[in-house]
Design a protein around this nucleic acid. Structure first.
Length: 866
RNA sequence: GCGGGCGUGGCGGAAUUGGCAGACGCGCCAGACUCAAAAUCUGGUUCCGCGAGGAGUGUCGGUUCGACCCCGACCGCCCGCACCA
């Protein structure tokens, strides 16, 4: 028997597919369309096992849908701008573009080697001028449509390197290269007004437009948008007090006006005008400066110790005559949310509670949890944030939290002190990056005319070529290119300067799916071609990591709306169905000096690890998402080299449910290879068997059993692919192979009998989405016509799925004691009788009285007795 | 800190969504083939117990005829937190 040799067979079929143009996007628009897209990769240099998992899933869907008769679009490209290329430039001296292009070339070859059914004719990289030039046009159109704004915003500032840092580059509050304590610094930056679309982005989560999305992602997005109904109200300063800027009151926002009677202080953000008005006081100035000494990330702000500084100011309580509350500047209040000022109710808010304990403020409980005795109730140790009944609250006493909120708002409105208001947690999208390797923002700064858009006729603003040595100096090389930067103002022709910020790379990935849907013949004419996008969009199946559940998906949803507003698209939701795959994780390894090591550089010995080269001990770190920076990546090439691409694909899809994280282990890859060999060994002796595929003969005996197994497998695998249960589809194929083997043993020899021929043909088509090269080789061997990737999907014959007898387990008091054989048509009384007659059951009924018999048709019988 | 998840044999996981816990695979054990090994094939493999039997799905409690599944509390791990992509 010829041994299956993937090294020869796999390239052969890849060549055949290419010659046949098997995966080029079809132009027959009368067919139902199916657009399957996996999140395009960042070209880090090599594909890792997480990519294989992602793209193998998409490829299963693409190949399956083609077999089901759909016109399939399955493209691939590169998310090619971004920070790592500039880091590489610093380290290796390669220009970001040189590095990126080389990585793309290497990764394209690796992906092609996986046998993915991709239309490579639509490939592009976001750093292609042909792509980003249209992004600049879209930006100018959004600007005209009122979706763009410039405003001040904080960045992480490294005071030693004098440069802006990404959050990722801030480690424990210090700059990653200089080690200096990072400060918050304000810069004027570009924003896209995503908050204008907050209401619709929220509404679509629930109105059925995103019914193909997982619940957890919709929930995360809902919480991120964070719509809250609350109260905007003004607190008047006590007596005749006035702030240095003349203010007599301060406006706060709260979602819990029901707890006003528990208020014990007011707090404002360090950059609130009221705080700033006291900045002449050195103590205030010092405190504000201290608050700026931390990164800009929400996590850093939340985890920092709650700190405040009391202002020489008090406010009047709106409901309690004579009650005065102190006013603080506090580091945990955000200027960007609400009004940048709050009232604190320590009894019912965790942060306020921390703050009150630290500064010895009153903690007044006003919400009583259900079924609680007020005499034994205390919030001294921990706040209570759940539902309950209001007390200690005058006119609100006895109301629920919800009713109390409404009543408090009504009273404040009647007093003329405030009004109900809806706020969003969602902030506008800051898109300025003080970096080189990105899409230039098409704007010009003129001293006379202000900020002026680059005229459309002057597009594109090409990213200038700089010497690779420019990246040795911290900061943005574009700032240091006067010949590029200095231009005449498009309006007054006076001296002006180009914007040197580039776009956030999230913009690049916010419309690439629409570009893929546009025929490359039309790429020169505009960002997208509406006739094409109207046909192909929305993406029918989008697949990517759960780590993108919020930002990327939210930005793409916003961008789609903005492109609809500007006439480029007809839809508002880009992704009809979303599947979020789990991540591939792996332990991290560090040597004695703390440097990360690749798994292949480490030898494991029990629960200890050593360096493969010199045997020095290695510290095993936590299991984390595979990432280049932590070096805990495994290259799929080793598996593909040894066992072939099919085995690598099969292995990545078997065992673990796709939505769950998987920890990579080496054992098991060989198992996938064993399967490839087993299938080949089953098919090869049945050469030409398709010709004996005569179904006119009635099934009986072993043939009937095999035929049922065949059709049950077809149905099961089909349902499992539709439901993204690839691991279960694979388990079914194993079971089917076991049944095939049993059949071959029982039917003594005639290896090409017709039930077996049917089974092998079905098997070949069922494995085609998973192990496409092997399937082609099997198809050819069996005598199938054409390519199996173009063959129709097998249909299960439902007549063969019916069983005449089923085995029903019988429990006594919830424990399995026997089993009876019944017909699916038997009624409950018949089943009961059979259950009570089972010898195993009778044993356990001696000396007890039967109280109740529960019969669940087709499932189980439970006899309750005592 | 806040938001979202996950937790089942030695390992990855299955359980028709409230109905036989451990499908399928890996590993391991035994056997066949072989001079031998590899590969392959056959059988076994949750734990305790010789056995009858008992226990068992992170921990504790609850609902139910029946709970891996639903509810409450806790523990552990993972992801995201707006400049990594």
């Amino acid at each position: 028997m010829a041994r299956y040799n993937p090294k020869e067979i796999e390239p052969k079929w890849r060549k055949r597919w290419e010659e046949a143009g098997a995966f080029l996007t079809g132009s027959d628009r009368s067919k139902p369309k199916y657009y399957v897209l996996e999140m395009f990769p960042y070209p880090s240099g090599r594909i890792h096992i997480g990519h294989v998992r992602n793209y193998a899933m998409g490829d299963v869907i693409a190949r399956y849908k083609r077999a089901k008769g759909f016109n399939v679009l399955h493209p691939m490209g590169w998310d090619a701008f971004g920070l790592p290329a500039e880091n590489a430039a610093m380290q290796t001296g390669d220009h970001p573009e040189t590095w990126t292009r080389a990585n793309i070339k290497a990764m394209r070859e690796q992906l092609k080697g996986m046998g993915l059914s991709i239309d490579w004719g639509r490939e592009f990289a976001t750093c292609d001028l042909g792509y980003y030039r249209w992004q600049q046009l879209l930006f100018l159109e959004f600007w005209k449509a009122g979706l763009v704004e410039r405003r001040m915003s904080y960045v992480n500032w490294d005071p030693v390197d004098m440069t802006v840092l990404a959050n990722e580059q801030v480690i424990d509050g210090k700059g990653w290269r200089s080690g200096a304590t990072v400060e918050r610094k304000q810069l004027s930056q570009w924003f896209l007004k995503i908050t204008e679309k907050a209401e619709d982005l929220l509404a679509a989560l629930d109105d059925g437009r995103l019914k193909g999305w997982p619940d957890n992602v919709r929930l995360m997005q809902r919480n991120w948008i964070g719509k809250s109904k609350g109260l905007l109200m003004k607190f008047r300063f006590a007596g005749e007090m006035t702030a240095p800027d003349g203010a007599r009151e301060v406006e706060i926002y709260t979602t819990r006006p029901d707890t006003l009677f528990g208020a014990s202080f007011l707090a404002v953000a360090p950059d609130h005008p009221l705080a700033q008005s006291y900045a002449k006081d050195p103590k205030v100035a010092a405190f504000i400066a201290e608050c700026q000494k931390s990164g800009t990330s929400q996590e850093a702000i939340d985890k920092a110790e709650k700190k405040g500084l009391a202002l020489p100011l008090e406010v009047e309580h709106p409901f309690i005559r004579g009650r005065r509350l102190p006013v603080y500047i506090a580091n945990f209040i955000l200027m960007g949310y609400g009004t940048g000022a709050i009232f604190g109710c320590p009894a019912h808010d965790a942060r306020d509670h921390d703050f009150a304990k630290k500064y010895r403020l009153d903690i007044i409980p006003v919400v009583l949890p259900p079924d609680t005795d007020p005499a034994c109730y205390s919030v001294a140790e921990a706040p209570y944030v759940g539902p309950g009944t209001l007390f200690n609250s005058d006119f609100l006493n006895g109301l629920s939290v919800e009713a109390g909120i409404d009543a408090a708002i009504a009273r404040i409105e009647a007093m003329g002190a405030g009004r109900a208001s809806t706020q969003y947690r969602l902030r506008d999208w800051g898109v300025s990056r003080q970096r080189y390797w990105g899409c230039p923002i098409p704007a010009i700064h003129c001293e006379k005319c202000g900020v002026v858009p680059v005229p459309e006729k002057d597009l594109p603003v090409r990213l200038p070529v700089v010497d690779a040595s420019a990246f040795k100096t911290p900061g943005n090389p574009l700032d240091r290119l006067p010949e590029w930067r200095n231009v005449p103002c498009p309006e007054c022709s006076g001296p002006a300067q180009r914007e040197t910020d580039t776009f956030d790379t999230f913009i690049d990935s916010s419309w690439y799916f629409a570009r893929f849907a546009t025929d490359p013949a039309a790429w020169e004419k505009g960002p997208v071609n509406k006739a094409d996008t109207d046909y192909w969009l929305p993406v029918d199946q989008y697949i990517g990591g759960i780590e993108h559940a919020i930002l990327h998906l939210l930005y793409a949803r916003f961008f789609t709306r903005a492109m609809k507003d500007t006439g480029h698209l007809s839809i508002s939701e880009p992704f009809a169905n979303l599947f979020t795959q789990g991540m591939v994780t792996h332990a991290t390894y560090r040597d004695a000096s703390g440097k990360f090591l690749l798994p292949e550089e480490v030898v494991l010995d029990g629960d200890k690890a050593r360096r493969a080269d010199n045997g020095e001990p290695v510290a095993i770190g936590p299991i984390e998402k595979m990432s280049k920076s932590k070096k805990n990546v495994v290259s799929p090439e080793a598996i593909a080299d040894t066992y072939g691409a099919d085995a690598a694909r099969w292995f990545m899809l078997s065992d673990s449910p796709p939505e769950r994280d998987v920890e990579w282990t080496d054992s098991g890859a060989a198992g996938a290879w064993k399967l490839v060999a087993r299938i080949w060994d089953a098919v090869e002796p049945a050469k030409g068997a398709i010709r004996s595929h005569d179904l006119s003969r009635p099934p009986e005996g072993a043939n009937a059993e095999l035929r049922r197994a065949t059709h049950e497998t077809i149905k099961g695998v089909t349902d499992d692919i539709e439901g993204f249960r690839f691991n279960k589809a694979i388990a079914r194929i194993y079971e089917f192979l076991n049944a095939l083997k049993k059949h071959a043993q029982r039917s003594e020899g005639s290896a090409t009998d017709w039930a077996q021929a049917e089974a092998l043909c079905a098997l070949t088509r069922l494995i085609a989405p998973f192990t496409p090269h092997l399937a082609e080789e099997c198809w050819e061997t069996l005598g199938g016509a054409g390519l199996v990737c173009a063959a129709p999907w097998p249909e299960a014959d439902s007549a063969l799925l019916v069983r005449q007898a089923i085995l029903l387990p019988v429990q006594v008091n919830g424990k399995r004691r026997g089993e009876i054989s019944v017909s699916p048509s038997d009624d409950a009384a018949t089943v009961e009788k059979a259950a009570l007659a089972d010898p195993g059951v009778i044993r356990y009924l001696e000396g007890v009285t039967v109280r109740k018999i529960v019969v669940v048709p087709g499932r189980i019988v439970n006899i309750v007795a005592n």
